[in-house]
Amino acid sequence: MGQIELNNVDYKYQPDTPFEATALQAINFTVETGSYTALIGHTGSGKSTLIQLIDGLIKPTSGEVTVVDHHSTATSNSKDLDQLRKNVGIVFQFPESQLFEETVLKDIAFGPKNFGKTDAEATAIAKKSMALVGLTEDFAEKSPFDLSGGQMRRVAIAGVLALEPEILILDEPTAGLDASGQAQIMNLFKQLNVEQGITIILVTHNMEDVAKYANQVYVLNHGAIVKSGTPREIFANQQWLMENYLTVPVTTRVAQKLIDKGYSFDEFPLTVAELSQKLIPKLKGEQ
């Protein structure tokens, strides 16, 4: 039994109307405590519906969602759904659109206060979260709307970390940031995963990030899970990914080209670091 379990879950939009549409069908999905799971699939494949189910923002049309020891089914009421949310934090796409308070500190403290923390407790947590995302104390009293895009993103992420979630869901968390901003934020999440054992679910189009960080991958297509496995298993089948309009990490593509020429790897490399480690001894042997 994983920390998150989806058991034969279906989700339909606007059921019983002419606008009815199936978003997810027959989903079976397991995430273990402390794991780093990537959810990939092209736009409209059902990824965002899936994460909303895990956070109890919507309930399944049929089947059962279990998060830690709380459940949601088609008959759950809003109180049951609220329970799911206690363990989960979501960083939505372009999360800076959730900012609304007068100061950075107040905005970050907003979540913990809603979940019953006192003002003092919430402020303390907020300060800790600011430090985590690399915002210095002089940002505390600034208006979030006077900050740069990258800084606003950090404030929004700190606002989610302040919920002290056991499970952190990230929906394209680096979209729109430049290279250095992307690297900093992705490293932060990896650090939370390794040092604090926070379970991470990453929704992304960026296969380099999947290769670099995830230890489990689910591939969604037309609302169904079509493949799952470790990144190495998923990316080994380049042909299949291309047919499903998904890309592979550049390293994988380069390694495949070498394989096509007749080279063989003992284990398929996924990142630049892995590829160079494998090649260096061979290249040196030649020299």
Partner: peptide
Amino acid sequence: DETQKIMNAQRARGVNFSS
């Protein structure tokens, strides 16, 4: 759509619109 997204984000931060 935007409203729905913002509502989801705030509900995820513990805002309760229905009670």
